[in-house]
Amino acid sequence: MSRYTGPRLKVMRALGVELPGLSRKPLGERDYPPGQHGQRPRRKSDYGLKLIEKQKLRMNYGLTESQLQRLFKEAKNAKAPTGHKLIELLERRLDNFVFRAGFAPTIVAARQLVRHKHLSLNGQVVNIGSIRINVGDTIVLKERSRRMPMVLECIGQPSLSRPEWLHCDEKQFSAVVTRLPDAGEIPFPVDEQDVVEYYAVRL
Rank of each mutant, 00 (worst) to 15 (best):
Y4M: 12
T5S: 15
L15Q: 15
E18S: 14
P20E: 11
S23K: 06
P33W: 06
P33D: 13
Q36G: 06
G38K: 01
Q39A: 06
K44N: 08
L51T: 03
I52G: 02
K56V: 02
N60F: 09
G62P: 05
T64R: 14
S66P: 01
Q69N: 12
R70M: 14
K79Q: 09
P81Y: 05
T82Q: 15
E88D: 04
R92C: 14
R93K: 01
N96A: 04
F97V: 01
F97N: 11
V98K: 12
A101H: 01
G102V: 06
A104S: 11
P105F: 02
Q112M: 04
K117Q: 15
K117C: 02
N122H: 12
G123E: 15
Q124D: 09
V126C: 09
G129W: 00
I133W: 00
I139P: 01
K142Q: 07
E143Y: 03
R144V: 01
R144H: 03
R147C: 07
L152F: 03
L152Y: 03
G156W: 04
Q157C: 04
P158R: 09
S161G: 09
L166Q: 04
D169V: 02
Q172R: 14
F173V: 03
T178D: 08
D191M: 05
E192D: 06
E192T: 00
Q193I: 05
V196S: 11
Y198V: 01
A200G: 07
R202S: 13
